[in-house]
Amino acid sequence: MDQRIIVAGFGGQGVMLLGQVLSYTATALDLHTVWIPSYGPETRGGTANCSVIISDTPIHSPLVEYPNILLALNEPSLRKFENKVTPGGVIITNSSLIKDHVFRDDVTVIEIPANDMALGLENLKTVNMIMLGAFMTQSTFLSEEAIHKTLEKTFSGAKAALLPLNQQALAMGYEHARSHA
């Protein structure tokens, strides 16, 4: 079954890159994928989101109206998309910023204190990689090895020094999601 993903948060949380890493990895694995950014006034200071479809069959409509995986990096994003998630789907939240939320009972919820964990790494910008790690516990098509290859490409050249930190963030997110599932 297709993985239909929405990644949503504040502008600056690395939401777009997170989605692109998924699509780059799917492309490397010769899967079908599409990435769509929200673009327009809402990306300037407000919420930012992107949608990703990963499939082993050709993708018709590129739009994700009803995701089966939602990555909500802040509370406005959760409120905006929670009711769109298909029954039986997965919601991964950044529980550092989303507290005491009463979730639907027909979805799997994975709560990751991503901001707190990122502060533990002394780099708040790793929030997206921690969330990506959590996603990887739910990934149908993408292998860990392929994600690592994408990260090696993403953090190369001038950004190469950031690779180990981001790999660490990814591993921490994965481990946290796996042990708290």
């Binding site: 692109q20 699509s23 799917a26 492309t27 079908h32 599409v34 990435w35 769509i36 673009y39 590129p62």
Partner: peptide
């Protein structure tokens, strides 16, 4: 604009 903005292989 959708095809301009989106990414595909």
């Amino acid at each position: 604009g959708l095809i301009g903005q989106m990414m595909e292989p």
